[in-house]
């Protein structure tokens, strides 16, 4: 059970690292994956930096959690996931954004997985 859980967490981490790095080498492709255009000028700078680092940091936190087996490291990326889901809801409720149910579902599932993994796999 713990091995399966660890594999799932590592896969999630890998996805986030790849996605984060993709913003550095293929920003147009990365943007298209998330359903957005690649912006121009200063907007592109912020788009690449903020979204790219969001994913990369999330992935690196997950790997840090797996390596150190400390619960707090699992909580950090979980917080990021739930935070993203909450911001999606705010965007939908108050700012005319689309209700992206797929994105919210992924973030809640991965966040919950990380919390669960923290409880099961952490040694502190």
């Amino acid at each position: 059970m713990n091995t399966v859980l660890k594999v799932l967490v590592v896969l999630a981490g890998l996805f986030f690292v790849v996605m984060g790095l993709r913003w550095a080498v293929d920003p147009a492709g990365a943007a298209a994956t998330l359903g957005m255009p690649l912006l121009e000028g200063a907007a592109r700078s912020s788009q690449m930096a903020d979204i790219g680092v969001f994913f990369l940091a999330g992935g690196l936190f997950i790997f840090t959690a797996v390596i150190t087996a400390r619960r707090s490291w699992y909580h950090v990326p979980a917080l990021i996931m739930f935070g993203a889901a909450i911001y999606r809801l705010i965007a939908w409720l108050f700012h005319d954004a689309a209700f992206v149910v797929d994105g919210i579902a992924v973030e809640v599932i991965v966040g919950s997985l990380l919390l669960f993994a923290g409880a099961r796999l952490a040694r502190d």
């Binding site: 080498v25 293929d26 690196l60 390596i67």
Partner: peptide
């Protein structure tokens, strides 16, 4: 080229984690 670069970068980023894991 972007995909190959991505693969190399991913490997480089995760290499320290793997080495640390082996060390532990």
């Amino acid at each position: 080229t972007p995909q190959i670069l991505l693969l190399v970068l991913t490997f480089l980023v995760l290499l320290p984690f793997w080495l640390f894991y082996r060390y532990r």
